[in-house]
Design a protein around this nucleic acid. Structure first.
Length: 109
DNA sequence: AACCTGACGACGC
DNA sequence: GGCGTCGCCAGGT
């Protein structure tokens, strides 16, 4: 069992119209400090992959960037907007509204 | 095995 | 809430 295997498996659980953070993915796997590994794994994912890599962002609700990632930050944003996800004037996403809730948790009281 | 790098995250100011 | 610094683990050389 490879770490990426778990990561990909979980990322594919993210429904369209919702986004998850690297930390969340890792956290759900029981690896809260493997947040980086999550992004590192997605880094190897291809654009035509069955994995919704575009539904994964950082805890700041922003799209990260890489020197040699597959596609561009615009590519990711384009896909997210196509799913109904809204962006702030600062290019951020409200995780409180579009944040993935696999547990169906409530947003507090 | 050690060092450096890397789609990140939490804490302090 | 934004910016800067340290920590975390895995991969490549």
């Amino acid at each position: 069992m490879n770490l990426r295997q778990d990561i990909y498996q979980l990322v594919r659980q993210i429904p369209p119209g919702s986004v998850a953070t690297y930390g969340q993915i890792a956290h759900l796997l029981g690896l809260p400090n493997h947040a980086r590994q999550v992004g590192y794994a997605l880094y190897q994912v291809a654009l035509d992959s069955d994995i919704p890599w575009h539904r994964v962002i950082n805890a700041q609700g922003k799209i990260s960037t890489a020197p040699q990632r597959h596609g561009t930050d615009e590519q990711q944003r384009w896909r997210l907007e196509a799913e109904g996800i809204e962006f702030d004037p600062q290019g951020r996403i409200d995780l409180k509204r579009f944040g993935w809730r696999p547990l169906g948790e409530k947003h507090g009281g």
